[in-house]
Design a protein around this nucleic acid. Sequence first.
DNA 1: TTGTAGGCGTTATCAC
DNA 2: GTGATAACGCCTACAA
Lengths: 328, 328
Amino acid sequence: MTLKELSEQLNVSPSTISRVLNDKPGISSKTREKVLEAVKQTGFSLNYAARNLATSEPRFIGIIGRKRGGQQDSIFFHHSMAQFEEYFEHSEYQCVNLSVYKEEVDFTGTPLSVSDFAGFIVRGQSFPVRTILTLKQTGVPIILLENKLSETNLDHVVCEDRQIAFDLTKHLIDRGYKKIVHITGPESWYNNRERIAGYIDALTQAGLKSEILSMEDTTVDTGSEAFERLQPNKLEHLGIMMVNDAMAIGFLDTARKRGFLVPSDIGVTGFDDIPWARLAYPPLTTARVFIEQMGKLAAGRLMQMIEDPDSRPIAIRVPGEIIIREST
Amino acid sequence: MTLKELSEQLNVSPSTISRVLNDKPGISSKTREKVLEAVKQTGFSLNYAARNLATSEPRFIGIIGRKRGGQQDSIFFHHSMAQFEEYFEHSEYQCVNLSVYKEEVDFTGTPLSVSDFAGFIVRGQSFPVRTILTLKQTGVPIILLENKLSETNLDHVVCEDRQIAFDLTKHLIDRGYKKIVHITGPESWYNNRERIAGYIDALTQAGLKSEILSMEDTTVDTGSEAFERLQPNKLEHLGIMMVNDAMAIGFLDTARKRGFLVPSDIGVTGFDDIPWARLAYPPLTTARVFIEQMGKLAAGRLMQMIEDPDSRPIAIRVPGEIIIREST
DNA sequence: TTGTAGGCGTTATCAC
DNA sequence: GTGATAACGCCTACAA
């Protein structure tokens, strides 16, 4: 059904209905109610295409992340996606997931183009800076979630990576581990760099020497691999501050297979508190990151940016929470 | 840039460019190439809204599932979503996730309406039949993934739930467990019913008595709870055929805490082979379900249905693969 | 407070 | 083979 058809039924003009449906002023409450009632009865809804053609106001929110095919990302993906969708549900915006396996966001051959987007949420680390900068040049508001760019001023929502890493490291020190190693992923990722800084802060404060092992990725498998590369011996009484839970769980698994006792021979901390962390054996000491809250904050801030395109970029930082279990 | 603007640059009419871009016949290869070249140069792309308004051809694929807030769903969600998106990437269609917490799909207040959708993929179990039937009445092609409706003939992609459940149960019998219990979720879910059938098939064949415990949900927590409800004793030499991995992992965790040895006191099998199954302690015997492949099949079949709306509904069934680890 | 008319960018139909 | 023209359904001046 079209506006015109409905208007004929109601003996009003299409514009009147349009005004009611767009909450425009200057309509008598009597007609307004009559229209609203009829809309409800008939289940009428405005045609997106026609509407967008007339106003050229974009109605989509693009959620962008890089798919890495790994399992460790799926929980974060799911939880933050759910927050975005919930936030924009029944708003005038529709979320669309634009995550790609490649390094570029590419609309060719796609029904949508950049001009259909009111804003973008860019999730996570594994995106080249160049790609984000290209996106920025479109002029569409962008907010980064779990990332931050030093190259340019972009709104972003991150957790207090550095502080949390500091706290975790300090916890290992307090537990009395002799040598404390940090195992991390690519240093091109913002949060890895921050966590390294927090680790070093804590060691420096305690007068200990730092040792960092960087892996190519941050999966369960690279966690296992890290154990093999490290070749720990029990006398070292090692404390491991892992950059995330998935790696920590892989590390724990291999340590157990090699006959190491956790936490007595080696202590391990994770980062994120994914649902499986408490089910690891032994249950993983880690830091809870409030990803749902962060997702909601990102969506809310993006909405502000859309409504007020001139607002200056801000940083939103969400604290974490250390959760001590039996792996330390 | 608009078609008209581009046409002025090129000294051809808008219709000509439109024809080229839509692969219509009746264009000299010279003009065709000239246009294609200019489009590439300028990065021009057709306006979705205008295009849709003119053709009224829907360009969206709706992915529908019910969000349950649990973690156990996220891996399946992520993996199948990734397959849909990959399949429709650079097609004329755009995937949109319409998953909801409620029981209805509701477009009110949303920029999109039913008429924007070329097809729907309905994922998983936790949707009332009524909702799916309502959706069906729109006339838009629908395919069910990991579900099947006896109420009506709908295309669907499922795994061989019954056969796999049979194989898992048989494995427990072969391992010599005395009493074999099946722990499942709501019987309103298609795959739970199928798995129960497979379990009973195997027990009947072996001349054993069945015992089924149904829980409200199929999460890690309900897995733990199932252990408490069952109150096993070691003399029973129990084999547990769990309806999924998450529950099995919860069960294992609690069993260990209560001092039970797996697999000697109790044997446990999962279902799905989620990435965490091999990391459970002990590593979980389970059945691998090829969710990526199933997602791709669903997308492909939906595409066929869109192209040929009269094709008769079919069932696609994908076998699983038993993976024996140390929990049995 | 309400109605009328023109235009948004594309496609389809018809004419050349 | 190509160009003109009329829709598609909605919004927004402007008119009443």
